[in-house]
Design a protein around this nucleic acid. Sequence first.
DNA 1: GACAGTAGTACCCATTGGGTACTATGGACG
DNA 2: CGTCCATAGTACCCAATGGGTACTACTGTC
Lengths: 117, 117
Amino acid sequence: MKALTTDDCDRNDVYAAACPCRDMLDLLANKWSALAIGALEDGPVRFGVLKNQLQGISPKVLSSTLRKLEEHGLVDRTVFAEVPLHVEYSLTPLGKSAGAPLAHLRDWVEENMTSPV
Amino acid sequence: MKALTTDDCDRNDVYAAACPCRDMLDLLANKWSALAIGALEDGPVRFGVLKNQLQGISPKVLSSTLRKLEEHGLVDRTVFAEVPLHVEYSLTPLGKSAGAPLAHLRDWVEENMTSPV
DNA sequence: GACAGTAGTACCCATTGGGTACTATGGACG
DNA sequence: CGTCCATAGTACCCAATGGGTACTACTGTC
């Protein structure tokens, strides 16, 4: 993955291959990302709880999903060095703002599958 | 992919692994699907035009993306048996209604990448 | 006959998605 | 002292998918 900056395109345009916002679209336009961000909207959630909430996700995939979200500044990871050790994931302000469009998407899906033909 | 029906879950819930709406979420929560549906919002578009508009997509990936959208009833494929033969893709009513949440998502991405750190 | 424009498909490969089993840590239990 | 629990991942492996390039098919035009 090349390191792109906004200089690579005049204006942010998801239809432009070189635009860095493609990376962000690719990140968010993903089943697990959309579900994870939704699950974090009500406040910090621990790894194990997320794993139960996102039914069917494996720990490895959850781990990599969260890491990608963290790298893009959408999620914060906080370690509590207690016993037993636990970790809380929470949305950054940016992550919170991304929650709205993703919630629309999840809602649309749920509302438009009532009659799956 | 198993053939699931809404009977597999009490209510449509994207967080339930067995819910058929997972398939739909997986389909829509995808970079190319989100871009393709956006590109079709202004009316029918031909294969080659789509290929140019979705910069960076290869014909194979575009073809499979459109086929999946068609299978899920979001897109119609119309062949014009003229010379040279051409094909128009257009949104079904369901596809049109899916356009709104996806537009929100694309807009959010473009508006929140102005300062890519 | 060669070439152009249409919409794909065939073939191949690298990347990723994904599952299962395992690690590390420390406390409670017996 | 050994075992089991809980925590949050990682290691390892495999299959599916994403993706690129080259090619096909059809017909009209030059």
